[in-house]
Design a protein around this nucleic acid. Structure first.
Lengths: 193, 193
DNA sequence: GACAAAAACGAACGTTCGTACTATATTGTG
DNA sequence: CACAATATAGTACGAACGTTCGTTTTTGTC
């Protein structure tokens, strides 16, 4: 790999970290440069604009998310087992982050802020929901879910649950968060069984 | 009311609006002053610091939330009817906002940002969860919920549902959001009945 | 090792940030 | 109406913002 690509990854890694703590909008080029000990202008040259930097951080996060959350779960048997793996992977992903999940914070940051970043985020979120939909479909095919299950409703339900988990875990630091999540998940799955 | 108090309300109103769109951290004194057509220093004098301004915006939002969401629902009969009223009020509150709900956005913004604002938000959120808990307790007393219902679990479940609604409604602009919410709410209530 | 290409730097631009201070208007009270 | 209290404006500050530019250093290739 060329030197430039290596540096870019270092930048994106640090940028992802900062975005998780402060939000994508508060990732400043100057502070990010300071963290990784390079010059503002040197960092800037990699992206040409702050907006591009933000989009690249988001896409970098998307790639990591696919690798560590989605793809591993698709390797397990379709159905409830896969769903539980997915949730576990998501929680591990979420827990490993210094701050919060960049997708969760960006979703509120960019709900009313037009631009490339919002567009990028919207696509990612719709893809994610489609992914949840397909996993529910696979659960129907596997016989774990009833045939008449509304897969888009499943996506809504599961995503809501994860958002609740994230709030309780990250902001509230509630000690019973995992228990709450487990109960809610089992209830959810039972309703679709 | 004294002149200063009137001005303060104008500021907080505009600040709340801006916070809903850009996030509480991006409410700048300069831009806020421009919106309400007064000087930066004149506005600043009301709060002595940006942090105080943010805290006051959050508390102002809290007062509005109590008035328009919580208190009206406490006037209706305890039980499932009250819960449905609460959810309706919350959705009306959420829909009326220009951007997103300040509590939702602040919850991600301040999950990892120490200071007075975070402390204020934490108290509000815990109060809100306690409120949901008490509403569930009242539903038990009214005979709408089973006696063995875990009220803290109810709070988690309902709050999660609202977070999902907020995401689908504000960011994704999903046309089926209200239907999704309705189905999820009914399923939730049935499980506690 | 030479030499072009790529990468990183340092300085500066105009703007905005939060905050401080002083001065002028406006308000409420006797 | 007078006069103090309150409220708003004006100006200035140092720092940080995103961005541009020309220069220097590092890298990869022949």
């Amino acid at each position: 790999m060329k030197k430039g690509q290596e540096t870019k990854i270092v930048i994106l890694e640090a940028g992802l970290d900062m975005a998780g703590q402060l939000g994508l909008e508060c990732v400043s080029i100057g502070s990010l440069a300071k963290v990784i000990k390079m010059s503002k202008s040197g960092l800037f040259a990699h992206f040409q604009s702050k907006e591009n930097l933000q989009v690249e951080i988001l896409n970098y996060a998307g790639r990591l998310f696919s690798e560590s959350v989605i793809l591993p779960s698709l390797k397990t048997k379709a159905g409830i087992a896969r769903i539980k793996t997915l949730v576990d992977n998501w929680i591990n992903w979420s827990s490993a982050l210094t701050g919060g999940c960049i997708f969760v914070s960006a979703s509120t940051e960019y709900s009313d802020r037009p631009g490339k970043v919002r567009q990028c985020l919207l696509k990612q979120q719709n893809d994610w929901i489609d992914c949840l939909d397909r996993i529910a479909q696979a659960a129907i095919s596997a016989g774990d879910f009833r045939k008449d299950v509304d897969c888009q409703q499943f996506a809504f339900d599961l995503y809501s649950l994860m958002l609740g988990f994230h709030l309780y875990f990250k902001l509230l630091n509630n000690s019973e968060t995992k228990k709450r999540k487990e109960i809610a998940l089992n209830r959810l799955l039972n309703n679709y069984r």
